[in-house]
């Protein structure tokens, strides 16, 4: 079920990315919706690919659903903010040393997931990624084959 959903999301988001590119190629200027389509498409493709990789044959992604949802929300929210917030001026306020839109992109997308995803991966590694039992089964398959 989880894999089917991820696959469906992958198909739809790939179509969105392709639509953004084709629209930019066939029209005289880039349509205003094209960056939005590319942003949503790219964020969804990356998340769907992660879910596809993390989900097990007979189960979903378990507790990993929480970091995945958080990351997806951050990507969409940060890109949306960058596309819709007012432009910078000489007197713009600074957020942690950067103008607001750049801060949202650099800290929101560039820094925040840096530790969230790797820690989620490590914490769930034995239960959701690779247990000793999994490894033993794989090694037994090798022995059986040879």
């Amino acid at each position: 079920m989880t894999r089917s959903l991820a696959l469906g999301a992958l198909v739809i988001s790939s179509v969105l990315v392709a639509a953004a590119y084709v629209a930019a190629m066939v029209s005289s200027g880039v349509p205003s919706w094209a960056p939005w389509a590319l942003m949503v498409g790219t964020s969804t493709i990356m998340l769907a690919t992660m879910v596809l990789g993390a989900s097990r044959a007979r189960g979903g992604v378990g507790k990993l659903a929480v970091p995945f949802v958080i990351i997806f929300a951050i990507l969409i929210a940060s890109f949306s903010a960058a596309l819709s917030m007012p432009a910078e001026s000489a007197s713009s306020a600074l957020w942690l040393g950067l103008p607001p839109r750049a801060a949202v992109i650099l800290y929101g997308i560039g820094v925040f997931p840096l530790f969230l995803l790797p820690i989620a991966y490590a914490v769930t590694f034995e239960t959701l990624t690779l247990s000793d039992d999994d490894l033993a089964r794989v090694r037994a398959a090798r022995a059986q084959r040879s």
Partner: peptide, 15 residues
């Protein structure tokens, strides 16, 4: 370089 925050975890899960 912005995707670096995501790509290594993605690569770990996927590949």
């Amino acid at each position: 370089i912005l995707p670096v925050s995501l790509t290594n975890s993605m690569g770990a899960w996927v590949l």
